[in-house]
Amino acid sequence: MDTESLAPVVGSILDAADTRGGDRPRLSVSPRSFPAAVATATADGRVPVIAEIKPTSPTTDGTRRDDPVELAEQMVAGGATALSVLTEPTHFGGSPDALERVREAVEVPVLRKDFILHERQLDTVAADMVLLIARFLDDLDEMVTAARQRGFQVLVETHTASEVEAAVEAGADIVGVNNRDLTQLEVDLETFERVAPTVPDDVVLVAESGIETRAAVERMRAAGADALLVGSAIMDGDVSANTRRLTTERDNS
């Protein structure tokens, strides 16, 4: 893994992640189907949104200290198709306990959002889906296999066409394209528009980062996004109303 070109804070996140995870028992999970949830939301006329519970991040100001279960329930009430819960503690204020509590409280699929670098870290907490970031995994094939052996669905995050190719070769059937460049932490929605055509039609395609407005939602959907992963735009303010604003298929205002 080449880390020289990464923004310093990303390097710090990876250094911290490299040491986390221990001798926990191997997990075996029975996941709620994310593709089925996406199909149901689409049939119901909702934009499939993975709403993210993110107390803080290196790219936002302040920390939101609401009970994660209350946030989760508000997101689901606003029409979220699935939830993403940060479990990275140092830079994002997340925890495995928060994910566990959220998953017990809701019926929608729950994604574990973290910087997972080693197989042992898959056993930290049960979730319906885990995030694996292609850029940071030289053994992506092995990690996808290890996650699936535990029952997890896998969202493989990419940023370039070559990373999409690696994800597909690893057997990924859910692929995210992150509009945020982790070298400088800059967001460009053209990233998704450029990379999305390289994703096979039979793969569930998720647009990530920078989706803050109805216009951005419609832009990502027009470019081929089956679902959207949204954090800050939902967490900043009224969580239920923000979720509803982005999940409503048509803007009636």
Rank of each mutant, 00 (worst) to 15 (best):
V108L: 08
V108G: 11
V108Y: 11
V108N: 05
P109C: 08
V110P: 11
L111H: 02
L111T: 00
D114W: 14
F115T: 03
I116A: 10
I116Q: 12
H118Y: 11
R120H: 14
R120P: 07
R120D: 14
R120G: 05
L122N: 00
D123I: 04
D123V: 05
T124E: 15
V125H: 11
V125A: 15
V125F: 13
V125E: 14
A127P: 07
A127M: 05
D128S: 13
M129I: 10
M129T: 01
V130T: 11
L131A: 07
L132E: 14
A134W: 03
A134H: 01
R135L: 15
F136H: 14
F136E: 06
L137F: 08
L137I: 06
D138F: 07
D139M: 08
L140S: 01
D141E: 15
E142R: 12
E142V: 04
M143W: 06
V144T: 09
T145W: 03
T145A: 12
T145P: 01
Q149W: 05
R150K: 04
G151P: 03
F152G: 10
V154N: 06
V154P: 06
V154S: 08
L155A: 11
L155D: 09
V156F: 09
T158D: 09
T158G: 09
H159I: 00
H159N: 12
T160R: 10
T160V: 04
T160Q: 07
V164S: 00
E165H: 12
E165D: 15
E165Y: 06
E165C: 06
A166F: 00
A167F: 03
V168I: 13
V168F: 07
V168Q: 06
A170V: 03
A170S: 13
G171A: 09
G171L: 07
D173V: 07
I174Q: 05
I174F: 04
V175E: 00
G176Q: 03
V177M: 03
V177W: 00
V177S: 00
V177N: 01
N178I: 05
N179P: 10
N179W: 11
R180A: 01
D181M: 04
T183L: 03
T183I: 02
Q184D: 15
L185K: 08
E186H: 13
E186M: 11
E186A: 14
E186V: 09
V187T: 04
V187G: 01
V187W: 01
L189F: 13
L189S: 12
E190P: 00
E190D: 15
E190C: 01
T191G: 10
T191S: 11
F192R: 03
F192T: 00
E193T: 14
E193H: 14
E193M: 06
R194W: 03
R194V: 01
R194G: 01
V195C: 13
V195E: 13
V195F: 13
P197S: 11
P197Y: 12
